[in-house]
Design a protein around this nucleic acid. Structure first.
Length: 333
DNA sequence: ATAGCTCGCCGAAAGGTTAT
DNA sequence: ATAACCTTTCGGCGAGCTAT
């Protein structure tokens, strides 16, 4: 590390266009470097608030992508668009030139759709990517990317691009916006749609809405788009709401018989012997079918909150214990 | 502990549009 | 015509909150 390039005579200067700086909602500055592989290393550096000059030494080990998050900069030197090109002091000529020879984009986040086979292939090549819940950091990156894209085009509302523009007009929108995110592009696409569809975060369903929903459900079956339109909600919202309206189930305390059935089914399905903790391999919908008197959600909740622990715990809580407890408490003991 | 609920994620697949 | 790109839909599932 040095404070200036003039002291580093042996060093080659090279501008890499695709390296950008952005700022997240916390004011942290994020340096995005080209993703050339799946595995992403994240380093966090905190800089003094009077830091005027930034020197970053980067090695493209294994052509992996990475980002550096910096906080506590006094005045951001970012340009209007929130993007700054930076220079890289290149210490190892071979690493960068070989890096530049490799494909410029991550195969994970740049192919529009990633089929099962694609994913197998990528995994076999050692690529890894994120799935599941989006972290705050990822959302920040995404929103920043979107903001940058929007501002860069002198626009105001991202929804304009997402819902009004022709595909032609928004050409590279999704790929630009996926920048720095180690997820399949398709996942980014869906995330963006969900995020900016204002029929998606409307809030709690009122009793009136529930009634309407039931009626619409009768009328239109699984035509969620139609139902949603009639209610001013998104299709996925009404679909998910309907999922919760099962009415053939018991409520209240589980009977011993129900618990027994549940445990039996779960152990059978998970393929472990009774007493072993079950961590996965259970389809709760099927469990509910077999338990018969409880919904999928009730089964899952019951198992995860109570029975799994009870059955696999160090001291087995037996049926006799249950009976004793009941008897004793009835007798006031 | 249980129910009720919101918000959210995923893979898969079918269907539509645009570029070459 | 074909490939690449984009959109929509569906079924399956989960985290985590609140009220009681």
């Amino acid at each position: 590390m040095s404070t200036g390039a003039e002291e580093e005579e042996a060093v080659t200067l090279e501008t890499v266009n695709s390296v950008t700086l952005t700022q997240d909602s916390d004011g942290s500055i994020i340096l995005h470097c080209p993703p050339n592989g799946g595995l992403s290393h994240t380093h966090t550096h905190t800089l003094p608030s009077d830091c005027l000059c930034l020197c970053v030494v980067i090695s493209f080990l294994n052509h992996e992508s990475f980002e550096v998050t910096m906080t506590a900069t006094a005045d951001s030197e970012l340009s209007e668009e929130g993007v700054a090109q930076i220079q890289i002091l290149q210490e190892d000529e071979d690493s960068l030139s070989s890096h530049q020879k490799t494909e410029e984009v991550s195969p994970v986040s740049q192919a529009w759709f990633t089929t099962k086979e694609d994913k197998d292939t990528l995994a076999n090549k050692g690529h890894k990517w994120k799935q599941g819940m989006w972290s705050k950091e990822e959302i920040d990156i995404l929103m920043n990317n979107i903001e940058r894209y929007v501002k860069g085009r002198g626009m105001e509302d991202p929804a304009e691009i997402i819902f009004e523009m022709s595909k032609e007009e928004r050409k590279d929108f999704y790929r630009s916006v996926a920048w720095g995110l180690n997820r399949p592009l398709f996942a980014v696409y869906r995330r963006v749609l969900r995020m900016y569809d204002n029929r998606n975060h409307v809030g709690k369903y009122t009793p009136e809405e529930i009634e309407k929903l039931k009626a619409l459900r009768q009328k239109h079956g699984n035509d969620w788009a139609t139902i949603g339109a009639a209610l001013g909600r998104s299709a996925s919202s009404v679909k998910d709401r309907c999922r919760l309206m099962k009415d053939t189930c018991n409520t209240g305390k589980w009977s011993e018989e129900e618990e027994r059935r549940l445990a039996e089914v779960v152990y059978e399905m998970a393929g472990v012997s009774p007493g072993v903790a079950v961590t996965g391999g259970v389809s709760w919908a099927s469990v509910a079918d077999q338990v018969r008197t409880r919904s999928e959600k009730q089964c899952r909740s019951k198992w995860l909150n109570y029975l799994n622990w009870k059955h696999s715990g160090g001291t087995e809580w037996t049926k006799e214990d249950d009976l004793n407890l009941i008897q004793f408490s009835c007798l006031g003991i």
